[in-house]
Nucleic acid binder design. Sequence first.
DNA 1: ACACTGACCTGCGAGC
DNA 2: TGCTCGCAGGTCAGTG
Length: 269
Amino acid sequence: MPELPEVETVVRTLEQQIRDEEILKVTVRWPKAVIGDPDVFAERLQGQHFRSFGRRGKYLIFGMDDMTLVSHLRMEGKYYIQDPSEPLNRHIHVVFQLSGGKELRYHDTRKFGRMEIIEKDPDLSDFHDLGPEPFDEAYTAERIREYCRGRRAAIKSVLLEQQLVAGIGNIYADEILSACGIRPGRSCARLTQRDRQNIVDNTRLILAEAIKAGGTTIRSYTSSLGVTGMFQNDCMVHGQKICRRCGHEIKVKWIGGRSSYYCPVCQAK
DNA sequence: ACACTGACCTGCGAGC
DNA sequence: TGCTCGCAGGTCAGTG
């Protein structure tokens, strides 16, 4: 599911719904959803309140009273707020019973997502080795140049590396390169300074638009509360058959272990 | 150090 | 209908 805009959407919706609610009880139904001992996890969170809601890259950051709860949704993780009377299905792995009477439920069909308790108010600057946020001034053409020094990997693969800039995933990498007129398979060593500046500018433009649209919905993804992102309506290449700029057939190429969509005409090289 | 692969999981649609 | 295969928005460990 989620890249930066989707995670941002989840953060905002959850803040509206459960801010300052107390956790009465935590049930971990699939132990591997939690890093560390699930019993300790559940015990420590009992009595804590959801005080702040943030994001770093694709990580959700919940500020509790005495600790920080970090959650990564990976491919398919999502949070739902449901009435306890609603039946639990087999994909709900963690249940937080809340003081307001509802439950916060973590749902993850592929079981890739993880959550973890870490110290209160962590230093997020070098959290998980993440690069700057896309809207941080540290994300520049110059940074891309330095980062790619001595490397020849495809620019598409490089954009997916969270150490360069945090939050870009497969969909937005394709969309950013489409907006720049750069083929995903182009070596990062063969970018011009103008290309790098274009990448920075379009990263911000596209992510900002996507956040405004509430994220992207592909296949069955909906964020918490059934909020459905609409950005897929704006995708120029990813998941498309025909280029929405020129009408040419979209190509799909396997790059760095991911499928990459591009228009061979608009993305000349 | 870099680049690539497999592993982690389940479900869905395509093709036979 | 029922099977197998390939694929899915992410990240990390392991291999040359």
